[in-house]
Design a binder for these strands. Structure first.
Lengths: 220, 220
DNA sequence: AATACAAATATTATCGTTATTTCGTTGCCG
DNA sequence: CGGCAACGAAATAACGATAATATTTGTATT
């Protein structure tokens, strides 16, 4: 089974494995918003101890994917149309910042990686939603990779994950098939490769807002 | 002993207490960058078990204040002039976004809270660095509070903390006494109260860049 | 309806295991 | 004969599991 966000196959530490698994389950909606996350349940389901589960849940709290209730455990963070709009808006603002800096610093290594990411995304099977999602994120992050600000990249990555969650919740199949996303990606890539900042930003914002407008109606 | 960032007096849970204490110690430079954070040492120093310490360290990792080394424990995140510049730059960009939105949504409740925060900051004893720092952060966050985006506020708060750490590392006494920070705060407040977006942003950016230019020479 | 008791569950501490690091010894080369 | 390097063993410290504690919630009885 492929994971949409990151690879869970490398079991470096039990905590990390649990963290990645749970994050994946939340983002893909396999664990719905508001669901209580009982440690006893999780530790048997994930075949591990309570400590790794607690630590993983703490980390997810920092990612805004899990809420910690005073002394009453954890639950999956709620979703709302307002938050969806907030994420969309923030993403547009932060990624424009990052994209402009990235294009300003762009070198051939960055360009090569971007072209490859785009190619792999297009080659990926669109019906295998999770696999496609991995490549889709890689492409978008590759765009920003040269911005020179690790913290900003981290913020963008977090926002991406939060946003993907809404895509899954809205039912993924529909949102991608209706529009010609490939053309939008192509436009972004071309503008980026030719270092056309304004065009790249316009294309990217357009891409986000189109998806956003479509999804906004389905949330909540 | 007052805490610069947040109150540690309310011991809701042991994990939270440890988290706040450690964060404070790192931000104020009492634990220097690069220092190894041994769990055994911390758990006796903080009079608690290993689990809360581990969990607190995990949380601090998400705040970028602590680095996790694969299976070799934790250490205080390194500092660098490059990162300082990155934080300064990001702060300018994100806070301008937040400030404009905040002013757009501003109401009287927000204005009252802001005026109070400013008053309390000015009333605070400038020689008690930690106490002053609490009020300084409150004032700056009060400016942005009405922006309507909790996630953005969270990012700004994180960046603020990262930045304060550099202030402490550079030796706090000097950086504040040399310039007329009060006048800069006053200008920001006045512009904000009169809802003058451009002036408020200019004043705020100016405030940051002046402090930044001063500190940049002392870091590393 | 309110209070008390019981069951469930989060939280914390302790213990055992595993992995990494460091120090010491031995062997080889200069 | 002396020094350096590499291998190995012991110590140290993180990681994971289990057990104990405290808080909360639900239920039952007064």
């Amino acid at each position: 089974m492929d994971k949409p966000v990151e690879d869970t196959a490398s079991p470096q530490s039990s905590t990390r494995r649990v963290y990645l698994t749970l994050r994946n389950d939340i983002i893909t909606g396999q664990i719905p918003p508001g669901e209580r996350l009982k440690i006893d349940v999780l530790k048997v389901a994930l075949d591990t101890g309570a400590s790794p589960v607690r630590e993983a849940l703490s980390l997810l709290t920092s990612d805004q994917l899990v809420d910690r209730l005073d002394q009453r455990g954890f639950r999956v963070a709620a979703t709302s149309r307002a938050q969806f709009q907030e994420i969309l808006n923030l993403r547009c603002n932060l990624e424009e910042l990052a994209l402009r800096d990235s294009l300003a610093n762009a070198d051939t290594a960055w360009e090569d990686a971007l072209v490859l990411a785009h190619h792999h995304m297009n080659k990926a099977d669109r019906n295998d939603v999770d696999a496609y999602e991995v490549h889709h994120k890689r492409f978008h992050m590759a765009l920003l990779a040269a911005c020179g600000s690790p913290i900003l990249l981290r913020f963008c990555s977090q926002l991406y994950d939060l946003n993907v969650r809404y895509r899954y919740l809205a039912g993924r199949a529909k949102s991608y098939s209706r529009r010609n996303v490939e053309a939008e990606h192509r436009a972004i890539l071309d503008a980026a490769v030719s270092r056309d900042m304004d065009m790249a930003c316009t294309s990217l914002m357009d891409h986000y807002r189109k998806t956003g407008a479509f999804l906004a109606e389905q949330v909540d």
